[in-house]
Amino acid sequence: MDIPIIDFHTHTPAWDHASWLAGAAFTPADFTAFLDSAGIRAAVVLSHDGLFHATPEANDRLAEFVAADPDRMVGFGTVNARYPGAAEEMERCFGTLGIRGLKIHPWLQGVSMHEPSLDPIAEVVAAHGGSVLCHDGTPPYATATQIAAFARRHPTVPVVLGHAGLHDTWREAIAAVTETANLYICLCGVPPYAGRHIIDRCPPERVLFGSDAGLSDQVGQAYAVARAHEITRWGVDDTTLRRVLYDNPRDLLGGWPQ
């Protein structure tokens, strides 16, 4: 089986602001070497520092990181919805930095998906045809149905459940995706038995894969390599697997990579 992979959930190194959950330092070249070792054609690279301290500088550094190989990496920046100028910073991310989406981590950033301050930011994402990827699977701020409610407020914005409900809320995630037309689900950190059920039950065009690379204490991202290999051993047929690993993320990213 030789299916190219677009990994929809990876992270930059934590450069400045992560006092824990940081992992090893690595360069863009290290990262593309990891992609090669895992058989990953291209990756959505999410902010890491910005989840701890959402500054414009964090988005600058993310943009600089992915610009090292724009054929293999696109960036999703972040803002904190409570910070003054958050929508303007989101506008700068799309208009100046070439960022393709917004990453939200409600429990790290302390933001509820019901806060109205998220709405003008989502409107910027909509205006640029971008997507939102949100950490999920963790009460009380990051459940699938909370994120689905946000998605329904912004029906033109594709919203991705970044972890498919993890171990405890994946059944809820299936329900949320099934009833919310612009909600996608990323198999990232979900146990294999749950992943198989998600693939069986969710709309087939809205299932994605992610490794969560970037958090390892090894430059080579050992666990992410293992996850990319593991999904091919879940017992999913090749046609379905190709949709999840390549066709669906490529469609969501507007045909990228070429």
């Binding site: 146990p191 294999p192 038995y193 293992a226 593991e230 051993r233």
Partner: peptide
């Protein structure tokens, strides 16, 4: 097991 791929769980310890 059966929630996992057992060989992957073992490989991780060997790695």
């Amino acid at each position: 097991a059966p929630y996992t791929v057992p060989e992957v769980e073992l490989e991780r310890i060997l790695d």
